[in-house]
């Protein structure tokens, strides 16, 4: 099995002692180089998970390991070096006055020499197709563009893992596609581990593996096709199922025995076409 890059061992967490547990006894692993989607309705504990992965929060019980380092006050900065986070609100994570200043911010924090910074800023912006916007100010950018800059800011620090904490939920469809396209390309080109925390099932369908969170606990873990076969169970958890799964279901109800695990539209198109040839 591949290297376990993130490991949660029986992690519990509360925001304060009177509050109910936001996470209760959560255990799971993320493997190096995979794209994992963590889904769940708002309040299911998925964003708390993200904050525990780079020491913005610490577990009340249990342990979190990032690249075999145990999360603790002493190691928190070493861990943050390996974990890049892209947050939900495009505006509230844009620190610099221009695109290039924003990408440089993290590098400045790490004391990188200026010549290297210039190189890394350009490289990171090339990866997200924003190199033409070097001197643009944030209020002249669209939400999707700002999120791409946020990804570049994270990339410039060369993390091993990027966490997208509902990074597309405030974007319009165009912005969402731009961001997901960039993430997919990155994952293919670089050996990056990606964790996307989302309630967008189309986004989750693009992942290698999905964890479904409910009431602060891991409800189910599996391949996208396994997860989406849960069907009505997902709807009961306040989630949705992707369009292709809905269509397969509808065709099955009408007497066509189409395999439940078809997720990609292209595959379903092919399947229907072949079905017709064989009639």
């Amino acid at each position: 099995m591949a290297n376990k890059f993130v490991q949660f061992n029986n992690v519990s967490f509360r925001y304060d002692e009177e509050a109910p547990y936001a996470l209760k006894n959560v255990s799971f692993s993320v493997f190096e180089g995979e794209w994992l989607a963590i889904v769940g309705h708002n309040g299911s504990g998925k964003s708390t998970l993200a904050k525990l992965m780079n020491g913005l929060l610490f577990p009340e019980e249990g342990d979190v390991y990032i690249n075999h380092l145990k999360l603790s006050e002493e190691l928190v900065w070493d861990i943050r070096d390996q974990v890049g986070m892209v947050f939900q609100n495009p505006d509230n994570q844009f620190v610099g006055t221009t695109v290039q200043d924003d990408v440089a911010f993290g590098l400045e924090n790490h004391g990188i020499p200026r010549d290297e910074m210039v190189e890394r800023v350009h490289e990171a912006l090339r990866h997200v197709n924003m190199v033409d916007f070097l001197d643009q100010e944030p209020h002249h950018l669209s939400g999707g563009q700002k999120q791409r800059v946020a990804i570049a800011s994270v990339l410039a620090l060369r993390p091993k893992i990027i966490i997208l904490d509902e990074a597309t939920s405030m974007l319009d469809p165009r912005g969402r596609n731009e961001v997901l396209e960039v993430v997919r390309e990155l994952k293919n080109k670089e050996n990056l581990t990606i964790i996307s925390i989302t309630h967008d099932l189309d986004e989750a369908a693009k992942a290698d593996r999905i964890i479904v969170m409910n009431k602060g606990q891991v409800y189910r873990e599996g391949l996208p096709e396994d997860i989406f076969m849960m069907d009505d169970e997902l709807t009961k958890l306040g989630l949705d199922i992707p369009f292709t799964t809905k269509l397969v279901k509808s065709l099955r109800e009408n007497g066509y025995d189409i395999p439940k695990d078809i997720l990609q539209e292209e595959k379903l198109v092919d399947y229907i076409w072949k079905l017709k040839q064989n009639i």
């Binding site: 065709l251 092919d270 229907i272």
Partner: peptide, 29 residues
């Protein structure tokens, strides 16, 4: 996408719901 693959239209008009689409696919099959 399906019509592109087949090279012909299925149904009389674009399906604006999943039920319409199912009907169109069924009649095509």
């Amino acid at each position: 996408k399906l019509e592109e693959k087949i090279g012909a239209q299925i149904g009389k008009q674009p399906s604006i719901s999943i039920n319409e689409l199912t009907d169109n696919i069924l009649s095509y099959l």
